[in-house]
């Protein structure tokens, strides 16, 4: 079973890299970009067969390691 974890900065946490990306897009002429926020994607290949159990396990992984919940939030997609 595959799972994909999206880790992004919490709203309100300043994202200097996202800001630099937005500035670069503006300089390329993409004036419509109001804001850019950078995050990361972590793909996991799991031996679980039950999607709900997998989701619970990945949630535990996120809280313990994959995300720093002081500054980041995460979203889990499970693909059975």
């Amino acid at each position: 079973m595959k799972a994909r974890v999206h880790v992004t900065l919490k709203p309100g946490v300043l994202d200097p890299q996202g800001k630099a990306i937005a500035n670069a897009l503006h300089s390329l002429g993409f004036d419509g970009v109001k804001e850019a926020r950078q995050g990361k994607v972590i793909d996991l290949d799991l031996d679980d067969t039950d999607a709900e159990a997998a989701r619970a396990r990945v949630d535990d992984m996120c809280r313990q390691l994959l995300a720093n919940t002081v500054i980041e939030t995460y979203r889990i997609e499970v693909d059975p």
């Binding site: 946490v13 300043l14 200097p16 890299q17 630099a20 720093n68 002081v70 500054i71």
Partner: peptide, 17 residues
């Protein structure tokens, strides 16, 4: 120490990258 929770808060990328 921040990652272990022994100290509060977090350290992010420098403002000017």
């Amino acid at each position: 120490l921040c990652e272990t929770g022994l100290l509060p808060g977090a350290l992010m990328r420098n403002r000017d990258l």
